[in-house]
Nucleic acid binder design. Structure first.
Length: 495
RNA sequence: GGCCCCAUCGUCUAGUGGUUAGGACACUAGGUUUUCAUCCUAGCAACCGGAGUUCGAUUCUCCGUGGGGUCACCA
């Protein structure tokens, strides 16, 4: 599909989260693909809040969802969004965009189905349903409603309602038919209606179930493509049936392969930190996470893997989507994040690292050390995988060193060799210009000649106290002359 | 268990009725380097199995196997 030059009002996709908690990376990827498609096609990206489950409702969830969406910079054209004061707001002509505010609409449409005989009142108690379900399962039968209330007489129904008996409304699934539909990713799918349950459409509390609300809303909101997880594939025939009942044209279905954990199962909270916030808190950049997620179940069909948001928009197409579930590869995420980290300027990184640095500097003064920290960022940049890693090596720059004197020796050096080497590098350091690591390096190399390891290893250990660290030139640049000299003198004393 | 879906290196993936089956992460080795990281080079590593169609199947069809999803008054 080519990208239209102008706004395309035919293409309308939605992200429809349920406000029951923080969204995980699988949800974000679903939103991302819908968003990329909308942007690629110059269509609209809407957000609708599906809060029909009053029991699981989390008052804070909607805001949390938008914090994630905003962090990932997936902007909303229509529906729910967070306004300038970070309050939940709505925009668009086809609202309301919160399902709990659309009850009157569902009521109107369910009545049509009741009138046409395609939906019916069911007075069966939860206990009875549970019982038959258990029996069916014990007999290895697929658990299904036994259709007891399917043919209740209008009079009976009237009486029961009058008596105040609680009821639900179910869809009357026709018998012996085959429901066919085409999914943009999975292709043609056919299911026998006899295997489809008489799905509850309206619950006892008057709220619609997902299946009913999603069909009514997607139609009324003129959604052209439904992007959702593969796990919705089995219930799509029910939705097709509802579209048929109403005489509506179904949208295009784009079911996305699941994002899997390392156990090859659908990603869930039980598999560790999978909420987007966890990744954010660890210091993954949104640009990196988005790029990484885009490659899970989608390919630009080229060798390019590092892509900006603009490139993703340009290259995205449904044809690049594929069917098999994708296991999250955390190592590759780390690699990709480090690629993005390297592109940041030192100033940007310094700003982004603040929240990780703050706890470390509680007692000292973060501002006071900002110049030094900026230098640390410069030299640690190639060593960190994520922002939070910046604090791992901080001690060697700010605390007194504690190491074994043996560590100072390069290969088979004797103590006397070591002392001579340290005395020489002390003299060089004391006389040198440390304000530029490269100059210092040239300077020192010129004076030690071929005996590099013999001098540079002890110097580096003297300055870092570590077996592994940045180069002595960089360390000296960060530490400054006074501290560098002090550390070399300490090393000499240790011998 | 019923129904539905899926199947290329360990992982993410590209690909074609005839290819040395390509790339990336990870891993290994080498180079650069005082060490680590970065960077560069090289290497390792895959078409689930069986039939059929075909001159030829990784590719198409069927069966099997394996994996996953789903079967709520949750979404």
């Amino acid at each position: 599909m080519n990208t239209p030059k102008t706004k395309n009002s035919e293409i309308r996709v939605r992200f429809a989260p349920s406000p029951t908690g923080a969204i995980h990376v699988g949800n974000l990827r679903t939103a991302l693909f819908a968003w990329l498609f909308a942007r690629n096609q110059r269509g609209s990206f809407l957000v609708r809040v599906e809060d029909t489950d009053q029991k699981r409702l989390d008052q804070e969830a909607t805001k949390k969802i938008f914090e994630t969406l905003n962090w990932a910079k997936l902007d909303v054209d229509e529906g729910i969004f967070l306004d300038k004061n970070s309050e939940i707001a709505q925009k668009g002509e086809l609202g309301p965009y919160i399902q709990s505010e659309r009850l009157a609409i569902y009521k109107k449409y369910i009545q049509k189905l009741i009138d046409s005989g395609e939906a019916y009142y069911c007075f069966c108690s939860a206990e009875r349903l549970k019982k038959i379900r258990e029996k069916q399962q014990a007999e290895n039968q697929p658990p299904m409603y036994d259709k007891k209330c399917r043919d209740l007489k209008p009079k009976e129904i009237e009486e029961k309602i009058k008596k105040g008996e609680p009821y639900v409304i179910r869809m009357k699934v026709p018998e012996n038919e085959i429901i066919k539909f085409t999914d943009k990713v999975f292709g043609n799918i056919a299911v026998e209606t006899n295997t489809i349950d008489d799905q509850v459409l309206i619950k006892t509390d008057g709220f619609p179930t997902y299946h009913f609300a999603v069909v009514v809303d997607d139609h009324l909101m003129k959604i052209s493509h439904i992007f959702r997880g593969e796990d919705w594939l089995p219930s799509t025939p029910k939705h097709i049936l509802l579209y048929k009942f109403f005489g509506w044209k179904p949208p295009k279905f784009v079911h996305l392969p699941n994002v899997l954990g390392e156990n090859k199962k659908k990603l869930s909270k039980r598999q560790g930190d999978v909420s987007v916030k966890d990744f954010k808190d660890k210091g993954y950049l949104p640009t990196a996470l988005i790029n990484f997620l885009s490659l899970l179940g989608w390919s630009p069909k080229s060798d390019q893997e590092l892509m900006t948001k603009a490139e993703l928009i340009e290259k995205f197409s449904i044809a690049g989507l594929h069917k098999a579930g994708a296991i999250l590869n955390y190592q590759k995420l780390d690699w990709m994040n480090s690629q993005y980290l390297k592109k940041e300027t030192d100033e940007e990184l310094l700003a982004k690292c603040q929240k990780y640095l703050k706890p470390y500097f509680k007692k000292n003064n973060l501002k006071e050390n900002s110049e030094k920290i900026k230098k640390i960022i410069t030299i640690e940049k190639s060593r960190i995988k994520k922002l939070s890693d910046i604090t791992v090596n901080l001690d060697i720059y700010f605390k007194n060193l504690d190491y074994n004197a043996e560590l100072l020796k390069w290969k088979e050096m004797t103590s006397e060799d070591l002392r001579k080497a340290l005395v020489l590098v002390l003299k060089i350091t004391a006389e040198a210009d440390l304000s530029d690591p490269e100059i210092f390096q040239k300077n020192i190399l010129a004076q030690i000649g071929e005996a590099r390891g013999k001098h540079l290893w002890p110097l580096r250990v003297a300055l870092s106290g570590q077996e592994k660290s940045a180069s002595p030139f960089e360390l000296a640049w960060v530490l400054g002359k006074e501290e560098s000299i002090k550390r070399i003198k300490n090393a000499i004393e240790k011998i």
